[in-house]
Amino acid sequence: MLGFIKKDLLLIKGNLKSLIFVILIYFLLMATGDFDISFIPPFLSTMIMLSTFSYDNYNNFDAYGITLPNGRRNMVLAKYLSTIILVIITTLLTYLASILISCFKGDAIDYLYLLNSMMMIIVATTFVIIFMYPIVFKFGIEKARIAIFVIVFGIAILGSILLPYLDLTNIINFLDNYGLVILPIFVIGFSLLSYFLSLKFYLKKEF
Protein backbone atom coordinates (compact mmCIF):
# COMPACT_ATOMS: atom_id res chain seq x y z
CA MET A 1 0.00 0.00 0.00
CA LEU A 2 2.92 2.28 0.76
CA GLY A 3 3.83 2.10 -2.92
CA PHE A 4 0.49 3.58 -3.98
CA ILE A 5 0.79 6.42 -1.44
CA LYS A 6 4.29 7.15 -2.75
CA LYS A 7 2.95 7.08 -6.30
CA ASP A 8 0.31 9.72 -5.51
CA LEU A 9 2.76 11.94 -3.62
CA LEU A 10 5.40 11.60 -6.37
CA LEU A 11 2.77 12.50 -8.96
CA ILE A 12 2.02 15.81 -7.28
CA LYS A 13 5.73 16.65 -6.87
CA GLY A 14 5.36 19.18 -9.69
CA ASN A 15 2.35 20.82 -8.03
CA LEU A 16 4.18 21.32 -4.74
CA LYS A 17 5.83 24.46 -6.11
CA SER A 18 2.43 26.12 -6.53
CA LEU A 19 1.40 24.93 -3.07
CA ILE A 20 4.55 26.47 -1.54
CA PHE A 21 3.86 29.64 -3.55
CA VAL A 22 0.35 29.86 -2.03
CA ILE A 23 1.76 29.34 1.47
CA LEU A 24 4.26 32.16 0.79
CA ILE A 25 1.45 34.47 -0.35
CA TYR A 26 -0.39 33.55 2.83
CA PHE A 27 2.77 34.35 4.78
CA LEU A 28 2.97 37.75 3.08
CA LEU A 29 -0.70 38.61 3.66
CA MET A 30 -0.46 37.60 7.31
CA ALA A 31 2.65 39.74 7.76
CA THR A 32 1.09 42.83 6.21
CA GLY A 33 -2.42 42.67 7.64
CA ASP A 34 -5.01 40.62 9.43
CA PHE A 35 -6.10 38.42 6.56
CA ASP A 36 -7.04 34.94 7.52
CA ILE A 37 -6.91 32.71 4.51
CA SER A 38 -5.42 29.77 6.37
CA PHE A 39 -8.04 27.44 4.85
CA ILE A 40 -6.69 27.94 1.32
CA PRO A 41 -3.48 25.82 1.40
CA PRO A 42 -5.22 22.70 2.85
CA PHE A 43 -8.12 23.07 0.39
CA LEU A 44 -5.70 23.55 -2.45
CA SER A 45 -3.86 20.40 -1.46
CA THR A 46 -7.16 18.48 -1.69
CA MET A 47 -7.68 19.84 -5.18
CA ILE A 48 -4.12 18.85 -6.10
CA MET A 49 -4.72 15.32 -4.81
CA LEU A 50 -7.88 15.18 -6.89
CA SER A 51 -5.68 15.73 -9.94
CA THR A 52 -3.97 12.36 -9.26
CA PHE A 53 -7.26 10.71 -10.25
CA SER A 54 -7.01 12.52 -13.59
CA TYR A 55 -3.39 11.39 -14.03
CA ASP A 56 -4.40 7.80 -13.28
CA ASN A 57 -7.25 8.02 -15.73
CA TYR A 58 -5.17 9.65 -18.47
CA ASN A 59 -2.30 7.18 -18.07
CA ASN A 60 -4.49 4.02 -17.82
CA PHE A 61 -2.99 3.34 -14.43
CA ASP A 62 -6.13 1.86 -12.83
CA ALA A 63 -6.08 -1.30 -14.95
CA TYR A 64 -2.40 -1.83 -14.13
CA GLY A 65 -2.84 -1.00 -10.43
CA ILE A 66 -5.49 -3.71 -10.15
CA THR A 67 -3.02 -6.32 -11.43
CA LEU A 68 -0.71 -5.56 -8.49
CA PRO A 69 -1.01 -7.38 -5.14
CA ASN A 70 -4.08 -6.15 -3.25
CA GLY A 71 -4.34 -3.48 -5.94
CA ARG A 72 -8.00 -2.50 -5.70
CA ARG A 73 -8.10 -2.14 -1.90
CA ASN A 74 -4.72 -0.46 -1.64
CA MET A 75 -5.41 2.07 -4.38
CA VAL A 76 -8.56 3.27 -2.59
CA LEU A 77 -6.95 3.38 0.84
CA ALA A 78 -3.84 5.12 -0.56
CA LYS A 79 -5.95 7.92 -2.07
CA TYR A 80 -7.54 8.66 1.33
CA LEU A 81 -4.30 8.41 3.28
CA SER A 82 -2.14 10.42 0.86
CA THR A 83 -4.76 13.20 0.80
CA ILE A 84 -5.02 13.29 4.60
CA ILE A 85 -1.20 13.26 4.92
CA LEU A 86 -0.93 16.22 2.53
CA VAL A 87 -3.76 18.13 4.22
CA ILE A 88 -2.18 17.69 7.66
CA ILE A 89 1.27 18.73 6.40
CA THR A 90 -0.03 21.85 4.63
CA THR A 91 -2.20 22.81 7.64
CA LEU A 92 0.76 22.44 9.98
CA LEU A 93 2.99 24.49 7.64
CA THR A 94 0.34 27.18 7.33
CA TYR A 95 -0.04 27.48 11.09
CA LEU A 96 3.69 27.33 11.66
CA ALA A 97 3.93 30.31 9.32
CA SER A 98 1.15 32.00 11.28
CA ILE A 99 2.98 31.47 14.61
CA LEU A 100 6.28 32.72 13.17
CA ILE A 101 4.61 35.89 11.88
CA SER A 102 2.90 36.51 15.22
CA CYS A 103 6.27 36.13 16.96
CA PHE A 104 7.87 38.46 14.44
CA LYS A 105 5.13 41.09 14.92
CA GLY A 106 5.21 40.65 18.69
CA ASP A 107 1.52 39.63 18.84
CA ALA A 108 0.27 37.40 21.62
CA ILE A 109 -0.38 33.84 20.46
CA ASP A 110 -3.59 32.11 21.51
CA TYR A 111 -2.56 28.47 21.13
CA LEU A 112 -6.02 27.12 22.00
CA TYR A 113 -7.58 29.29 19.32
CA LEU A 114 -4.94 28.13 16.83
CA LEU A 115 -5.53 24.48 17.73
CA ASN A 116 -9.29 24.93 17.38
CA SER A 117 -8.87 26.72 14.11
CA MET A 118 -6.48 24.06 12.75
CA MET A 119 -8.85 21.33 13.78
CA MET A 120 -11.79 23.04 12.06
CA ILE A 121 -9.83 23.37 8.84
CA ILE A 122 -8.70 19.73 8.89
CA VAL A 123 -12.29 18.66 9.65
CA ALA A 124 -13.73 20.83 6.87
CA THR A 125 -11.16 19.62 4.35
CA THR A 126 -11.66 16.00 5.36
CA PHE A 127 -15.39 16.41 4.84
CA VAL A 128 -14.69 17.55 1.30
CA ILE A 129 -12.78 14.28 0.75
CA ILE A 130 -15.44 12.24 2.52
CA PHE A 131 -18.04 13.69 0.21
CA MET A 132 -16.10 13.71 -3.05
CA TYR A 133 -14.12 10.47 -3.14
CA PRO A 134 -17.01 7.98 -3.25
CA ILE A 135 -18.45 9.97 -6.18
CA VAL A 136 -15.08 9.88 -7.94
CA PHE A 137 -14.64 6.14 -7.35
CA LYS A 138 -18.18 5.48 -8.53
CA PHE A 139 -18.30 7.61 -11.67
CA GLY A 140 -14.66 8.22 -12.52
CA ILE A 141 -13.02 11.62 -12.27
CA GLU A 142 -14.47 13.15 -15.44
CA LYS A 143 -18.12 12.43 -14.67
CA ALA A 144 -17.53 13.09 -10.96
CA ARG A 145 -16.49 16.69 -11.64
CA ILE A 146 -19.93 17.42 -13.05
CA ALA A 147 -21.68 15.47 -10.28
CA ILE A 148 -19.70 17.30 -7.58
CA PHE A 149 -20.42 20.67 -9.20
CA VAL A 150 -24.16 19.94 -9.37
CA ILE A 151 -24.30 18.73 -5.75
CA VAL A 152 -22.21 21.62 -4.33
CA PHE A 153 -24.24 24.14 -6.32
CA GLY A 154 -27.46 22.53 -5.09
CA ILE A 155 -26.34 22.60 -1.46
CA ALA A 156 -25.23 26.24 -1.79
CA ILE A 157 -28.61 27.29 -3.19
CA LEU A 158 -30.52 25.24 -0.62
CA GLY A 159 -28.32 26.66 2.17
CA SER A 160 -28.83 30.25 1.10
CA ILE A 161 -32.60 29.71 1.01
CA LEU A 162 -32.83 27.92 4.35
CA LEU A 163 -30.11 29.73 6.33
CA PRO A 164 -32.21 32.81 7.24
CA TYR A 165 -34.82 30.51 8.82
CA LEU A 166 -32.34 28.44 10.85
CA ASP A 167 -31.12 29.24 14.34
CA LEU A 168 -27.57 27.91 14.53
CA THR A 169 -26.65 29.52 17.87
CA ASN A 170 -27.09 26.31 19.83
CA ILE A 171 -25.05 24.30 17.35
CA ILE A 172 -22.25 26.89 17.36
CA ASN A 173 -22.21 26.98 21.17
CA PHE A 174 -22.18 23.20 21.33
CA LEU A 175 -19.26 23.02 18.89
CA ASP A 176 -17.40 25.71 20.84
CA ASN A 177 -17.66 23.64 23.99
CA TYR A 178 -17.34 20.09 22.71
CA GLY A 179 -16.06 20.47 19.16
CA LEU A 180 -12.54 19.29 19.90
CA VAL A 181 -13.89 15.96 21.19
CA ILE A 182 -16.95 15.43 19.03
CA LEU A 183 -15.62 16.47 15.63
CA PRO A 184 -12.70 14.02 15.44
CA ILE A 185 -15.12 11.18 16.25
CA PHE A 186 -17.45 12.40 13.50
CA VAL A 187 -14.60 12.78 11.05
CA ILE A 188 -13.21 9.31 11.73
CA GLY A 189 -16.67 7.74 11.53
CA PHE A 190 -17.62 9.46 8.28
CA SER A 191 -14.15 8.85 6.81
CA LEU A 192 -14.54 5.11 7.40
CA LEU A 193 -18.02 5.19 5.90
CA SER A 194 -16.74 7.10 2.89
CA TYR A 195 -13.77 4.74 2.47
CA PHE A 196 -15.91 1.60 2.59
CA LEU A 197 -18.36 3.13 0.14
CA SER A 198 -15.52 4.01 -2.26
CA LEU A 199 -14.08 0.53 -1.85
CA LYS A 200 -17.43 -1.06 -2.56
CA PHE A 201 -17.69 0.93 -5.81
CA TYR A 202 -14.08 0.30 -6.85
CA LEU A 203 -14.19 -3.45 -6.17
CA LYS A 204 -16.86 -3.73 -8.84
CA LYS A 205 -15.14 -1.53 -11.41
CA GLU A 206 -13.74 -2.87 -14.67
CA PHE A 207 -11.08 -1.29 -16.84
Binding site: L2, G3, F4, K6, Y55, N59
Partner: peptide
Amino acid sequence: FFPELLSPNDINIIMKGIY
Protein backbone atom coordinates in the same frame (compact mmCIF):
# COMPACT_ATOMS: atom_id res chain seq x y z
CA PHE B 1 0.21 2.59 -18.05
CA PHE B 2 2.95 4.24 -16.01
CA PRO B 3 2.17 7.85 -15.08
CA GLU B 4 4.02 10.06 -17.52
CA LEU B 5 5.29 12.46 -14.88
CA LEU B 6 7.33 9.76 -13.16
CA SER B 7 10.86 8.54 -13.86
CA PRO B 8 12.31 5.00 -13.55
CA ASN B 9 13.74 6.13 -10.20
CA ASP B 10 10.19 6.88 -9.04
CA ILE B 11 8.95 3.53 -10.39
CA ASN B 12 11.61 1.81 -8.28
CA ILE B 13 10.44 3.70 -5.15
CA ILE B 14 6.81 2.82 -5.85
CA MET B 15 7.38 -0.85 -6.68
CA LYS B 16 9.46 -1.39 -3.55
CA GLY B 17 6.33 -0.42 -1.63
CA ILE B 18 4.12 -2.79 -3.62
CA TYR B 19 5.97 -6.08 -4.22
